[in-house]
Nucleic acid binder design. Structure first.
Length: 390
DNA sequence: TCTGGGGTCCTAGGACCC
DNA sequence: TCTGGGGTCCTAGGACCC
């Protein structure tokens, strides 16, 4: 999808059309989450600090993000994809691989499928999408970058290397800042240059795994199949604060808040996790992580919170200023899988957790929570949903 | 310029086991 | 007395992606 968050916002507010618009926070530490093509003319890009984006484009319109909205539009986009083929591999909220090799009976060519998918997305959702068509995944990915905005790019079978080799090596999926710097040392600028580097030389520079992988890609080889519905491996919540947090007391409150969110998301996804993660970024941007594997799976906020307290202690943060705090859960397993019993957790906590889940589903996630996080003043009176009989 | 939030994958060392 | 080889699990950090 092209400038996905921005285009979704334009569906609700047509005054944003034709203007330089970004979606992102307005705080001093915010970054751009998505930029319209009008904003990109000024040099504004995703992940750029908002302060810089504003400087580059004084008339920039900033829209605060609404991830729930993007996620529900994303669901509709993906169901359009699945109406063409069951083999859909989501890459993010707005991007997917579709294996259309089985559609020969219904379409003349893969390019015809691309035209049809784009038209469906446009007709049903009024959103622009770009499609890259190619014989392998990474080639299709590069082709889709080439197709943007709102277009199609076809890389014909046999024409892969002609398309690939003139491109800058940084365009390759998997070559980030660090690998790019290492490749520059080898005098590599284009993907063609990379293809010419002997594999052993590449491996000694960037490591065996990355070296082998890049050597294959640069020569147009990518055997990876399109894999649908892979399981979630981790759930995490993190936040960068407008002002640094100082002191264990503040940190503990934030850990509780994050633990509640992580637990809620795990519960709603029907997942339990065994490993709890803590992430701390200090004022100087140095970032540390600590993790602890529990004796049994959990999705109870209290378990995650207590583990995060132990991890915080181990991190010896003391009174150092903290700009980011995060809590995560991994080693996930689904409801269906047999769970080990938690020996040190009375059943009442599971029951409480379940009751909270029911209440939150009905009244919203702010309706029930630990007293520590309440601000003492009731906000909105929670009201049942319209479709609720009670 | 001063750096978000949500993820995945990889590496490397150490503990532990047979 | 100083020492193998293979395997799994755990932890910390880093690269990369959108």
């Amino acid at each position: 999808m092209d400038a996905f968050f921005v285009e979704v916002e334009r569906l609700d507010d047509s005054t944003l059309i034709g203007k330089p618009v970004v979606v992102g926070g307005t705080g001093v530490r915010s970054v751009v989450a998505a930029a319209s093509y009008e904003a990109r003319v000024f040099g504004v890009r995703s992940a750029m600090p908002m302060t810089r984006a504003r400087r580059l484009c004084p008339d920039l319109v900033i829209v605060p993000p609404d991830h729930n909205k993007y996620s529900s539009v994303s669901t509709r986009v993906f169901s359009i994809f699945r109406s063409y083929t069951p083999t859909v591999e989501g890459l993010s909220v707005d991007e997917a691989f579709l294996d259309v090799s089985g559609l020969r009976m219904h379409f003349g060519s893969a390019a015809d499928v691309a035209v049809a998918v784009r038209r469906s997305v446009r007709d049903d959702l009024d959103l622009p999408a770009s499609v890259g068509v190619a014989t392998t995944k990474f080639m299709a990915k590069l082709a889709s970058e080439h197709a943007k905005p709102d277009g199609i790019h076809l890389v014909k079978a046999g024409g892969e290397l002609d398309f690939l080799h003139p491109l800058p090596v940084r365009a390759l999926w998997g070559v980030g800042q660090s690998t790019h710097a290492a490749l520059e040392q080898l005098g590599v600028e284009t993907i063609g240059d990379l293809a010419a580097v002997p594999e052993p030389a590449l491996r000694s520079r960037v490591g065996d795994s990355v070296g082998v992988h890049l050597h294959e890609l640069a020569n147009g080889r990518d055997p990876r199949p399109v894999l649908s519905d892979s399981e979630t491996k981790s759930i995490s919540v993190e936040q960068t604060y407008e002002a640094d947090l100082v002191g264990v007391e503040r940190l503990e409150i934030e850990l509780l808040r994050h633990s509640e969110k992580v637990a809620g998301r795990a519960r709603r996804a029907g997942l339990w996790g065994r490993t709890t993660h803590l992430k701390v970024r200090f004022a100087d941007f140095k970032t540390i992580t600590r993790s602890e594997t529990l004796p049994a799976q959990t999705n109870v906020a209290r378990d995650i919170y207590r583990a995060s307290l132990r991890l915080l202690e181990r991190a010896s943060v003391g009174s150092r200023p903290v700009r980011l705090l995060g809590v995560g859960l991994s080693s996930l397993m689904s409801e269906a899988q047999p769970r080990q019993l938690a020996v040190d957790r009375p059943a009442k906590w599971d029951e409480l957790s379940e009751a909270i889940a029911v209440a939150q589903d009905r009244f919203g996630s702010d309706a029930v929570g630990p007293a520590t996080l309440a601000d003492g003043r009731p906000k909105k009176r929670p009201r049942p949903r319209d479709d609720d009989a009670h």
